[in-house]
Amino acid sequence: MVHFVCGPLWFLNADLIIEFISLLIALLIGLFSHRASKFTSERKYFYFAMAFYLIAASFGIKMLATWLSCSQFKQVVFQSITIIQYNLNSVQTIYALGSFLHRFFMLTGLLILTTLCLKIRTNKTRLLLLFFIFISTWFSRETYFIFHLIAAFLLLYISLSFYANHYRKQTKNSFLVALAFALMFISQLIFIFVLLDPTLYVAGVIVQLLGFLSLLLTYLLIGKK
């Protein structure tokens, strides 16, 4: 039996809308970076675009999985957390795959951002890190915790790097980027403790949304120039 934590039942629709907003913002950043990679022919913009495309895809897969599971399957409310039960083996397999892809895409996107921030340029190192991400998301028994723990760890590195960039540049945009990833890092920390208090899920999603809105503001300010 596969269980998927969706947070409180009353929050399901809002959750889907928030994830859709985050998906659109990630896509916008990815498309801009893709345009930059074509303009400059520099690989770093291409990798940056790929990272955001993967994050957008991760949100898309999660939304689809949540929507499918919540519209077609039996919901069990346990201590005000919505747990969806899957009784059919085939559906269970499809859902498990969707859940894996969501985690794998998100972590791979964050990993690419981390390698860019840490200036890791060798493909051997990148592949090694990707292998560990795959192993930890595929074989882990505590997938939920492991996923958020790794995401939090990667986001910590990314946030520190963007903070260092802001310290050097001292611009409004560099501040907004550093703030965005710091908020995403905090949201992952909150998600780790969701099973202790289900309302934390709502807090985590809102903090994550604030992070993406900060990225959107950066995008809009760049576009205005």
Binding site: A36, T40, Y45, F162, N165, N173, S174, I222, K225
Partner: peptide
Amino acid sequence: KEYKKIKEFSDSFGL
């Protein structure tokens, strides 16, 4: 115009 935007993007993200 495009170069200015990309430079700003690059500086914002430290790329």
